[in-house]
Design a binder for these strands. Structure first.
Lengths: 349, 349
DNA sequence: TTGTACGCGTTATCAA
DNA sequence: TTGATAACGCGTACAA
């Protein structure tokens, strides 16, 4: 197999010569700078097309001191969530010169303190931090210190000047409890997410507040810890359904765990939603795919990623040092009622 | 908010000065080149650490004529599949200097013929082509012509010199039918995938061959076209179950569609697997999350992506022009039997 | 509106 | 085992 010796690509000089102009003019054309006569511009473009010229990314990066590369850092076990994140970011980048590097981490601890090194090694102009890295203190302070532009998706912790996009997790969890209580449920259990994720705590808080608002005293026995994975939800469901007094409703802190609860219920012969209501969180793909389809909180992950990416671009382009236009953005959640919740069978006193 | 003027990073020159050597020596150290005395190497490394030196990616790319960036191009509606693909590729890249750019396409047609431009605009050293782009003639011939290194995951079409990693789709589909026939099923339906994907055709072929091998005549009424999406599987399931004579088993060409079939069955009050067996394909996350869990074909997507990425690296590094060591690799599938299949209720003559 | 000259931070060549 | 120096292709002052 003869690998052809990849005929050297034409450069800006070639185009300049062919068009009879200086390289600076070619540069102007390709950077949409003003002060180029239309005729000249056309000539350059024609020459470029004829020569199949494409600006060399590396040279541009070196001379321009920017790589047009941004990173998306996350640590999440849910494929649906991850793809939504990526889709949102990529969406915003469409039509821009920026490219996206995905940076999945096994666990946030592994990334802690190494983000700057990673950014430099990868040549990033900026980073979008998704949960739970957005709440990692070491990462945030490091980024803050080295001046690398970054934005955060769904952070809970403060201590950062960076723009972020959030959703009201507490309010959303309350809305879940409202819905359930409205259906007559009083023994409402929660399956928490990974405790190291701030969202896990926020949802627990909203859950408790919701209960209290409905005159129900939070019961520690009804709060079981999961890990945002299907398996952890399954285990939690099994445990909850094996209890002497079963809950009539289970609120899982994400859809994957809710699916696990659903499976546990099926195995135990507990009918959903007739004998047990189940609620998820995220409205990821999985929520519409299990049976019955999950009542859940729609979290606008794509939109959040899109906005966070947009804010990052603004930050990067912002040479003047003027404050970013939208430092903190809150996107609304939405309770999506599907088939996994119903009026409680035997209302309890 | 005072954006700090990002104190200029130290360069190779700084390190060279600090270590009392030439920049070439520093370069040698950072590129693991031989012929550097250990003492010198240590001195350089110490200086680099002290100065917090990180090689500039852009400069390396420009001078070295390689970006250490590879692309992963795909067009797939299933998040699970996509994440598996990415994970496999990233896996292989771990510890390497290469970085990964994800290139999702809305539809292969949009990418057709533009791959080279994209590669150049993104500064790619090479590309991994996942289905269905791996079978796009325009893309392959274009890549072949411009000499950009690429490898393919699961291609069906030939006409390419590039290394690829495949799985025996036909054999896998036959194995599904074998399993079903072994359980006494004779009215076995298939939900096909997107007809523009080569895998769809291969699985259909294996399905038919399997039937014939068991003395069953393929029935066009039992072959319905889907699109590899949950919704299409749901629709297909509804149609199949509404027929006068129902199939006793449905083989969906991927898990997402199988989940759709499952939902249709639940809605129609058809018990799975008691009254209907359902089989998926891929063994993606979704297969273990629905109820009952899906009997399916485990497709080693991560492994395939890992191998294809490895082959790409070999191709890129291969300056000598020697033939790639493993041009075509076939990875084995595996039939995973779970709860969605069972012996047929009323065997038919 | 256009062009000249320099620098960006490496790798590569060749000599020492 | 090391080093001087020329590319690499493009952006940016500054000049014309």
């Amino acid at each position: 197999m003869a690998r052809k010796a990849a005929a050297r690509h034409s450069t800006i000089t070639d185009v300049a010569d062919a068009a009879g102009v200086s390289i600076k003019t070619v540069s102007r054309v390709f950077n949409d700078e003003p002060n180029v006569r239309q005729a000249t511009r056309d000539r350059v473009l024609a020459a470029a097309t004829a020569l199949d010229y494409h600006p060399n990314v590396a040279a541009r990066s070196l001379a321009g001191r920017r790589t047009f590369l941004i990173g998306l850092a996350y640590e999440n076990p849910s494929p649906n969530y991850v793809v939504d994140l990526q889709t949102g970011a990529l969406d915003r980048l469409k039509g821009e010169r920026y490219r996206l590097l995905v940076l999945p981490f096994e666990d946030a601890v592994a990334a802690s303190g190494k983000m700057q090194a990673i950014a430099r090694a990868s040549g990033l102009d900026g980073i979008v931090l998704a949960p739970p890295l957005c709440d990692d203190v070491a990462t945030v302070t490091e980024l803050e210190a080295c001046g690398l532009p970054y934005t955060r998706i769904g952070p809970t912790s403060g201590g950062s000047q960076a723009p972020d996009v959030v959703m009201d997790d507490i309010g959303a969890a309350r809305a879940v409890v409202d819905h359930l209580a409205g259906l007559g449920h009083r023994r409402i259990a929660i399956v928490r997410g990974d405790p190291t994720h701030a969202s896990s705590t926020a949802r627990l808080e909203g859950y408790r507040a919701g209960l209290v608002a409905h005159g129900i005293t939070p019961d520690p026995c009804l709060e079981v810890v999961g890990a945002y994975t299907f398996a952890s939800g399954y285990a939690a469901g099994k445990a909850l359904l094996a209890a002497a007094v079963r809950p009539t409703a289970i609120f899982a802190s994400n859809d994957d765990m809710a699916a696990g609860v659903l499976n546990a219920a099926h195995e135990a012969g507990v009918a959903v939603p007739a004998a047990l209501s189940v609620v998820g969180f995220d409205d990821s793909n999985i929520a519409s795919v299990v049976w019955p389809r999950l009542t859940t909180i729609h979290q606008p992950i794509r939109d959040m990623a899109r906005e966070a990416t947009g804010a990052l671009l603004a930050l990067i382009e912002d040479k003047a040092g003027s404050a970013p236009p939208q430092p903190h953005l809150a996107l609304p959640f939405q309770l999506v009622i599907r088939g996994s919740t119903a009026r409680v069978a035997e209302p309890q006193a």
